[in-house]
Design a protein around this nucleic acid. Structure first.
Lengths: 343, 343
DNA sequence: TGTTAGCACTCTTGTCTGTTGAGTGCTAAA
DNA sequence: TTTAGCACTCAACAGACAAGAGTGCTAACA
């Protein structure tokens, strides 16, 4: 167990290092107002803290730097809930004040705000599209052989896809099919769409449409095939500003990782609701072993959950950032609730 | 005017430097098969070439490096049309073989291909959306107070926006308005939409809709306000691989520039049709003064023109890249033509 | 017994110096 | 006109050295 004084020293070291990114020496600690004892005493305490694995030296006579274990302890026990400045609160609220409400836009904006306020990279994962419900399906013919299929969900999400109509199929058949589908599938969650179509609507379609199989196949390829589980990233370049990433190789591997959207989606999707902090090697992804990843969840409607995440160096302003993400995620949840409650 | 031999030396220097990114010395030139004279002779020629400003030294006793003027000369006079490998040709063609044809997707894919094949950063600018024609307008109500407005163009482009419906306006009014608009505005180019509405359709709307002004205002804000002139970027991280960008500061300013989409759109939009090469300081943008920008245009339909661009270090594989962009841009033009000709 | 002053020690960082090697310019001979 | 030869230049690297920051340890002090 740590003494009161050790806690204080650890806190000062981490706070200082988060600010400056420089190893913290005993002298500079003893000069702090809240510290009343001499640098020699602090050196002793620091030796103990190091023995416990909470701090490290970069070389034998350097100041101390928090270890991952140190950050972990800090996050678990030392976090003082920080106040956000008025300006920060205002920026967040303004994002949601906008009367134009569209999921994509708001999320995109949120990602921007989050990265701007923190100078880290924000990643927001939209909720599983398939859990949203079908509002409307539609085909807009463009030429004789081409058309656009459009699908609107109850969240205002619009999925669209242009496609070629093969010779054998009349645009009219498609239209008819879409009418039937619209009639029968209104309000059906996208996940159940396949099933519903085969079990309940299939027969109906067959009797009303020529070339049912083909036409349907095309429609399916156009719209129902793919759930792009969108990722919204903000402040990708903020990483370049962090002194820990002056090494190009690190930047490269981190950027390479961010290109792999699938992996990130998978990573974020697997998080449980609530705020989570993963520090350094707690992250399984190789490229992120010098980073911390903070995730929080927001709700869209009743049980559709999305994730907001913030990626920065392990030397992160944890208390500010966590507060910020708390505010943002609940603001998002509230906003989305207000949109869809009148449904 | 340059002698035959000077041309050869210049060519070798530039080719070599493009490959290795290292200053080229007289000895290494003389060892080339196509070069038959001694290093001393070459040194004399090089002195002349330097006097003409076509090559430079990095320090007083270094090998030579092409100057911007040298690259310019190379591009204008020394470019040998290169053959593309079968693999390259195949990658390009596969992009367009896909039966799913949607402008956004194809362009996105093209950007990917282009950056993959070149290891530079590709930027593709979609054509001015406003020059496309209205195919269909639609409102899909989500809740009592919210709805999605959808606009489809003849190019298969889908623009959508969710918005709140104010208390005073009935969803029914909007629907009615949309029906009228659809009827009257089919085939109208988006640029003329405003004008047409005010001159020809306005009266009609007023007589048929309550709260015309407000409803219309909302509709306009939702859809007609903004043309997002989309930018598709591929291989942003390729820049990091180039040795000339081991300096983080350069990377930073370049990335910062690429975030400013408006500027880039403006930059690319101002290019005339055809292939253009801007080398180093020929670019007006500060962050690009160490880069070359190659632009080519493609046509979408008759007079709607988009731009594809490739951003890399001034030390670029000009002949391969130019060939590649030629092929790609004409492939794009052909493909789009085939889509929309049946209209 | 806990705290602190003092001192020797360690390691980084920056500067300076000398060496090496690649490459040049010039000159004189072929 | 071309080329061999040579003196010269400069970047890059390595080693030496001083300065400075910071530590650990010891002995004295409260």
């Amino acid at each position: 167990m740590l003494t009161e004084r050790q806690l204080l020293v650890l806190q000062v070291i981490i706070d200082e290092f988060i600010q400056t990114a420089q190893p913290v020496g005993s002298r500079s600690i003893s000069k702090k107002d809240e510290v009343t004892f001499s640098s020699a005493t602090i050196r002793n305490e620091m030796a103990d803290l190091e023995e416990m694995g909470l701090i490290e030296k970069t070389h034998s006579s350097s100041g101390r730097v928090p270890s991952e274990k140190g950050y972990r302890f800090y996050v678990d026990h030392l976090l003082s809930p920080s106040r956000l400045s008025n300006k920060e609160i205002r920026s967040i609220q303004e994002t949601f004040r906008d009367q134009m409400l569209e999921f994509e836009r708001v999320v995109q904006k949120s990602a921007g705000i989050l990265s701007d306020l923190t100078n880290y990279t924000s990643i927001i994962l939209g909720p599983e599209v398939f859990e949203t419900k079908l509002k409307q399906l539609q085909i807009v013919p463009l030429t004789h052989q081409t058309a656009v299929a459009i699908l609107v969900t109850n969240t205002g999400h619009v999925e669209h896809r242009a496609f070629t109509i093969p010779q054998e199929i009349e645009a009219y058949d498609l239209e008819k099919m879409v009418n039937i589908l619209n009639d029968r599938l209104y309000g059906v969650p996208l996940v159940q769409l396949h099933e519903k179509i085969f079990n309940e609507v299939g027969d109906l379609l067959k009797t009303h449409t020529r070339n049912y199989e083909q036409a349907f196949q095309y429609l399916q390829a156009a719209l129902l095939n793919e759930q792009p589980a969108k990722l919204y990233v903000g402040g990708k370049t903020n990483i370049l500003m962090q002194p820990e990433f002056k090494d190009l190789e690190k930047v490269r591997s981190l950027y390479a990782m961010m290109e792999k959207e699938n992996e990130i989606v998978h990573l974020l999707r697997s998080e449980h609701p609530g705020i989570h902090v993963k520090i350094g090697h707690e992250n399984e992804v190789d490229a992120m072993q010098d980073c911390s990843l903070i995730t929080a969840s927001y709700a869209l409607g009743d049980d559709q959950i999305g994730t907001i995440a913030l990626l920065g160096p392990t030397r992160m302003e944890y208390n500010r950032v966590i507060k910020l993400m708390n505010v943002l995620s609940s603001e998002m949840t509230d906003t989305f609730k207000s949109w869809y409650q009148g449904e």
